[in-house]
Amino acid sequence: MQEILRSTDPTIIAFASALLSGEDIEVFEMDVHMSVLEGSIGVLPRRLMVRRDQAFEARAVLRDNDLHVTE
């Protein structure tokens, strides 16, 4: 698995997940339940992970939609 996006904004994570799923790219969201530790204030970022062999395509999809990707 390789990280392709990190954000504290849940709408960006949801949008990116929908875009990638629409392209048949498997997405796994990490750190979803960290709000329990932080007190639900949204300071800890969530990460989107994809398989290494799909990372290049996933980054291209996100860049085409003006989302900043993790290199």
Rank of each mutant, 00 (worst) to 15 (best):
M1K: 03
Q2K: 15
Q2L: 11
Q2P: 00
E3R: 04
E3G: 03
I4D: 01
I4H: 00
I4A: 00
S7E: 13
T8P: 04
T8V: 03
D9C: 06
D9E: 13
P10Q: 05
T11L: 13
I12A: 14
I13N: 02
A14C: 04
A14G: 07
F15E: 10
F15R: 13
A16G: 02
A16T: 03
A18Q: 04
A18G: 01
A18C: 07
L19A: 02
L19E: 07
L19Y: 04
L19P: 00
L20I: 03
L20N: 00
S21M: 04
S21T: 10
G22M: 06
E23L: 05
E23P: 01
D24L: 01
D24T: 11
V27Y: 00
F28V: 11
F28Q: 12
E29K: 03
E29S: 12
E29G: 05
M30Q: 03
D31G: 02
D31L: 10
V32Q: 12
H33V: 04
S35V: 06
S35C: 03
S35Y: 06
V36E: 12
L37S: 10
E38P: 04
G39T: 07
G39R: 10
G39M: 11
S40N: 09
S40V: 06
S40E: 13
S40Y: 13
I41W: 15
I41S: 12
I41D: 11
I41R: 15
G42P: 01
G42S: 06
G42F: 08
L44W: 05
L44S: 06
L44H: 08
L44F: 11
P45G: 09
R46D: 03
R46Q: 15
R47A: 12
R47I: 11
R47H: 04
L48W: 02
L48A: 10
L48Q: 00
M49V: 14
M49Y: 06
M49P: 00
R51Y: 08
R51Q: 12
R51L: 11
R51P: 05
R52A: 15
R52W: 11
R52Q: 07
D53A: 09
D53P: 01
Q54C: 15
Q54D: 12
F56E: 13
F56G: 10
E57R: 15
E57I: 14
A58D: 01
R59Y: 01
R59E: 14
R59Q: 12
A60Y: 09
V61Q: 03
L62I: 13
R63L: 10
D64T: 11
D64F: 08
D64P: 00
D64S: 14
N65H: 15
N65S: 11
N65D: 07
N65L: 09
D66Q: 08
D66R: 07
L67A: 03
H68K: 05
T70L: 10
T70V: 14
E71I: 02
E71T: 04
